[in-house]
């Protein structure tokens, strides 16, 4: 299969989701409730205080939207589907085709997430912008860097989710792994509490783990909490993580394929 043909999977995933378009309403509603709940919590925390550690309430409202609906990628469905395909052996039907399975997953999940960003994140962002108000990026350069961070965030989350689903092949349960991952992501990605409000030793450790590139660093860069050299440096570190995780995935997939063709699906 030619590389130029893979985007067909993106389109397929996108149109598949249209079949369940009534789920969009509950998705938007759920995200809105969660977003306004977090905004309420931060509003309460900021009562009587203009800034906390150099962070303002409008900063936090914008952080909630970016780290939450925008970058807290929904992978539950994806991990379940891939985990099931692996557990039931359906994955062997993909081995029968002239294609690279992880690449198929990549383009497929791109379609899924594009669908969610357009139908759920965008409306939620518009509603929050017109009710509570959102800040623009700290500078044009920060805004441009943020776009690169956004891509890295998606890439890292795709790799972590795919690795999690593949572990189901050895551990035989994608469900428990998904809960485990969600627990880790809730803390380590900074989706709920930014690293700057965490105890210093914890923040220091989490600041080096790949999860922080999913929600925390992109949001912090958007808000200008990292100066441009620091933002550039962390983008480079994020890319190193991306390459490392891609390497692990390639290795794990080749081991899995080997096991599949020796021991059967």
């Amino acid at each position: 299969m030619k590389l130029s043909a893979y985007p067909a999977f993106t389109a397929t995933a996108f149109t598949s989701r249209l079949a369940y378009r009534n789920q969009v309403w509950s998705g938007v509603f759920g995200e809105l409730v969660a977003t306004f709940a977090f905004i309420a919590v931060w509003t309460a925390a900021f009562v009587g205080r203009g800034t906390v550690d150099g962070v303002t309430l409008p900063d936090m409202v914008t952080y909630v939207l970016i780290a939450g609906p925008l970058l807290n990628w929904n992978t539950t469905r994806y991990i379940r589907e891939v985990g099931d395909a692996i557990r039931t052996g359906d994955v062997t039907t993909f081995l029968l085709k002239p294609l690279h399975y992880p690449a198929l997953l990549f383009f497929n999940q791109l379609g899924n997430n594009a669908f969610e960003q357009l139908t759920i994140t965008l409306p939620v962002a518009i509603i929050v912008a017109f009710t509570v108000g959102l800040l623009p990026p700290a500078s044009l350069a920060h805004g441009l860097l943020f776009v690169a961070y956004w891509v890295v965030s998606w890439g890292i989350m795709f790799l972590i989710a795919t690795l999690t689903a593949m572990l189901a092949f050895w551990l035989l349960t994608a469900f428990a792994l998904d809960w485990f991952l969600r627990g880790i992501m809730a803390v380590a990605s900074g989706a709920i509490v930014p690293l700057w409000f965490m105890p210093a030793p914890l923040a220091a450790v989490l600041g080096y783990l790949p999860f922080a590139w999913v929600s925390y660093y992109p949001s912090a860069v958007y808000l200008g909490k990292l100066d441009l050299p620091a933002a550039g440096l962390h983008l480079a570190i994020g890319c190193v993580w991306l390459a490392a995780l891609a390497g692990v995935l390639t290795w794990l997939w080749s081991r899995m394929r080997h096991r599949l063709i020796v021991q059967g699906g």
Binding site: M1, A5, F9, T12, S16, A19, G89, T93, K97
Partner: peptide, 22 residues
């Protein structure tokens, strides 16, 4: 085992195969 895309019209699975097999 099904190799068709469950949520899509039959025709769309065929179209995808057109890409997969050039």
């Amino acid at each position: 085992r099904s190799q068709l895309w469950w949520d899509l019209p039959v025709r769309d699975s065929y179209d995808l195969n057109r890409h997969i097999y050039d």
